[in-house]
């Protein structure tokens, strides 16, 4: 900040001017210097923060807001970690390569056991864990519903799941707290033997909470069913497709200006006419 070289330069440049001007020059140059140092420091700092806060693959505690809001709100106090009776939650340490001090869990080590009273959410002082997303106030009383949480979604690797090989295994299905809803078993003929059925675990993302009990229970060396953050694992249809067989979804078409399609000479014929063209039906 007090750099004598720049001061000297400032003095030389202001030699022929009035002394008042010289003072002003000195002030301006010193100020510019401070701002420049702050900018350099700030850019380095920002670059680090920008890298350090990115965590697309992390599973957050129950009721956590969307990652962008969560990372902004979490004060890194660890009250959720202390409230967890199963030691599921951890705070990211320096060296974990995760946003430092924020809570997360690894279901393969310790999954979330979906406590009915959700002890980890109410202690959150900042609202990074949103109590309203996992509870309702009924007649002045707060009623918790852990099945409302969406920490992630389980994804089956059908090449490494032994049930898909044809070996009977329903470890994940049995472990699921929302059995037959979040994970159900689909029957398929075993074409290799020709006389057996395969019982295949299938996840329904509408019900899956991302607790990870399935991943914890999976018998393969590396789990063939894994919980991933919903943003990472799930797609999105967008507004182009309508479920024509659902009245509620059809309503989305209300007020639309009709369907605009390309018109060619062929379009004058109906689809049936067009398809059957040139075929001799006798």
């Amino acid at each position: 900040m007090n750099n004598s070289k720049s001061l000297k330069e400032g003095e030389e440049m202001g030699k022929n001017k009035a002394p008042k001007n010289k003072e002003r020059r000195r002030f301006l140059i010193q100020m510019a210097q401070n701002v420049a140092i702050a900018t350099v420091g700030g850019l380095v700092w920002s670059a680090f923060v920008d890298e350090a806060k990115a965590a697309p693959l992390l599973l957050r505690p129950p009721g956590a807001k969307k990652e962008k809001d969560f990372i902004s709100l979490c004060i890194k106090c660890g009250l959720c970690v202390e409230a967890c009776p199963y030691d599921t939650l951890m705070l990211a340490k320096p060296g974990d390569n995760k946003p430092i001090g924020t809570p997360y869990f690894i279901p393969r080590d310790i999954p979330c056991y979906m406590c009915d009273d959700i002890p980890c959410v109410p202690p959150c002082p900042t609202g990074a864990l949103d109590i309203d997303s996992v509870s309702e106030v009924k007649e002045g009383k707060r009623v918790f519903d852990i099945t409302q949480m969406r920490m992630g979604v389980a994804i089956v690797d059908i090449k490494d799941c032994i049930a898909y090989w044809g070996i009977q295994c329903d470890a994940c299905y049995r472990a699921c707290p929302l059995l037959d809803k979040a994970i159900f078993m689909e029957y398929r003929q075993n074409e290799r033997t020709g006389k057996h059925a395969k019982l295949l675990p299938v996840v329904d993302p509408d019900y899956c909470t991302g607790c990870g009990l399935c991943e914890h229970a999976c018998v393969t060396e590396i789990a063939a069913i894994k919980v991933l953050p919903r943003d990472v694992a799930l797609g999105k249809v967008g507004s182009h497709y309508v479920k024509g067989w659902q009245k509620s979804d059809e309503r989305r078409l209300k007020g639309s200006k009709g369907i605009q399609t390309t018109v060619t000479p062929r379009s004058k014929k109906s689809a049936v006419e067009s398809l059957n063209e040139g075929i001799d039906f006798e």
Binding site: A38, G41, G42, W45, S46, F48, V49, D50, A52, K53, K68, I71, S72, I75, K76, P99, I100, G101
Partner: peptide, 16 residues
Amino acid sequence: LSFIISFLLGTAAFEI
């Protein structure tokens, strides 16, 4: 600076 960076990057900058 910490307030400016917090504002720009959407997370408490000094806490990281």
